[in-house]
Design a protein around this nucleic acid. Sequence first.
DNA 1: TTGATACTCAGGTATTGACCTGAGTATCAA
DNA 2: TTGATACTCAGGTCAATACCTGAGTATCAA
Lengths: 115, 115
Amino acid sequence: MAEYQQKLDRVFHALSDPTRRAVIQQLGSGPASVSALADPHKMAFQSFSQHLKVLEDSGLVISEKEGRVRTCKIAGDALVNAQEWIAAQRRRWNEQFDLLDIYLSELQEKDVDDE
Amino acid sequence: MAEYQQKLDRVFHALSDPTRRAVIQQLGSGPASVSALADPHKMAFQSFSQHLKVLEDSGLVISEKEGRVRTCKIAGDALVNAQEWIAAQRRRWNEQFDLLDIYLSELQEKDVDDE
DNA sequence: TTGATACTCAGGTATTGACCTGAGTATCAA
DNA sequence: TTGATACTCAGGTCAATACCTGAGTATCAA
């Protein structure tokens, strides 16, 4: 339970930064090395590296080192979890709308009866 | 452009805290006052109020004050935006998988040809 | 073997975040 | 009108975040 919540904390936190979202987007077109990912971003390589660490800690990205190159790719699960949490909230919220619709329809029917 | 990114920053940041996610969940069963929302959370009312401010700033929640009571409800759009961003990333990522599948199938066909 | 590459680690600073307390203000009920 | 309710505002602390610089350590290419 608490573990699932902490995972969501980390995933949403990871997604709350534009640099990190850009990395997810970059990795959408295939795996890449840390240098290749860092290249478009105007910041010290070490700063960028910390962003990657946040992404890895969140489970959104996984990486493997071969020689001196670390290659990163997206790990789907964390993204799925985040999307499903949002989807669940939207379902509940839409149900409320439906209930309201039903209630309003019923009210209207009564109005019609009263006429 | 940058505005859209900042909006996503705020939405994902808002969702990165368990108290705030709980509020979204609570509001899924209908509008509620600040006190009612604060009640289940063991923290100073003022602290909770700051969480609500984050939710409002993100556009996830809207509220209206009538008399001394502020009533809050979910505003769907921000949640939709967040979900769609994730969905778009997943689509791109799955396309990569599909491309890899095609590539691997082609490789295999060549192997078969070579036999 | 030497130099360049690709990270990796340690530490420093400035801002933001998550909580708190204390002191308002406005509204409503009696 | 008086007291309780429902916030609201100001400020303070402490930890976490987002950046930085400087100094490693491997690995690979020549």
